[in-house]
């Protein structure tokens, strides 16, 4: 299968007052088309830098980022982004927020089509009836759902998510995992998810990439061999629990501690 995202030997350092601070050193990542890649690693290991590289918001010092067989040099219209902060534009209604990317990339699309497309997604994530509310009137979980809709409204090839569920409580988070799973069934996209949550990585990912501590390199890749229509219950079954143990050990190694 063709790899939609290919990251090869990427090195990157930020310049700080006390000299260069290397954040990525030997990062490799391949995500086939339509696959979901979850990236986990210790805090501050350069995961967010990775999202900015794939989005074309910055260029690595060394190495290459390929999307669709093209070298990424600048932002592309075929990317969607979601962050831990839902980044709602408070002066717009929910549906206007969701339609924002269409205003940039889909100039030819009629207003009615844009509205229909946004409504279709809002319905999928269970926000029907809230489309004309202001973001401040919605709960954190609902805002994050709207943020997901906005990230995929223009049918991007690649969805880049930087800890999108990190600020939510556990139950809301599990709800959103399932929403994410359902969205994927309807809307094919390739996805990179940065997360701190190992259960999340196993539930959503087709592969889980463990990054080492800073400067980050690819330390371990786990293939998640679970059915696509998995439920939360699967996380309590042996196969998933074994994976969680492996990941836990890998994180300990990444943190520079002894594995069990």
């Amino acid at each position: 299968m063709e790899n939609l995202i290919d990251i090869r030997d990427v090195r990157h350092a930020y310049s700080t007052k006390s000299g260069p601070l290397p954040v990525l050193d030997g990062l490799n990542l391949s995500v086939p088309k339509g696959e979901f890649c979850a990236v986990v690693g210790p805090s501050g290991c350069g995961k967010s830098t990775l999202t900015r590289l794939v989005a074309g918001l910055m260029k690595p010092d060394e190495g290459e980022v390929w999307l669709h067989g093209e070298l990424v040099k600048s932002p592309r219209k075929t990317v969607g982004m979601a962050f831990q902060n839902p980044v709602m534009l408070e002066w717009r209604s929910i549906i206007e927020n969701v339609m924002l990317p269409l205003e940039i990339v889909a100039n030819g699309m009629s207003k009615a089509d844009k509205t229909a497309r946004a409504m279709e997604l809002l319905e999928l994530v269970g926000l029907k009836g809230f489309e004309h509310k202001r973001p401040s009137e919605l709960s954190g979980g609902m805002r994050q759902r709207a943020s997901l809709c906005r990230a995929i409204v223009h049918k991007p090839d690649v969805l880049i998510m930087d800890e999108p569920f990190g600020a939510l409580d556990n139950f809301t988070r599990e709800d959103l995992w399932q929403t994410m799973r359902d969205l994927r069934a309807k809307e094919p996209f390739t996805c990179i998810l940065i997360t701190h949550d190992l259960r999340e990585s196993v539930f959503l990912g087709d592969q889980v990439v463990v990054l080492s501590g800073r400067p980050a390199r690819t330390q371990y890749v786990l293939d998640v061999d679970l059915p696509a229509d998995r439920t939360i219950e699967i996380l309590y079954e042996k196969q998933a629990v074994d994976m969680l143990h492996i990941l836990r050990d890998q994180i300990r190694i990444a943190q520079g501690r002894e594995a069990h």
């Binding site: 900015r52 989005a55 074309g56 918001l57 600048s74 932002p75 592309r76 219209k77 990317v79 969607g80 982004m81 962050f83 902060n85 980044v87 534009l89 924002l100 990317p101 940039i104 990339v105 906005r150 223009h154 880049i160």
Partner: peptide, 14 residues
């Protein structure tokens, strides 16, 4: 302005 606000549009080439 928080960088995320800029990034959601910059990533689309705005």
């Amino acid at each position: 302005l928080e960088p995320e606000y800029r990034d959601i549009l910059r990533a689309l080439g705005a």
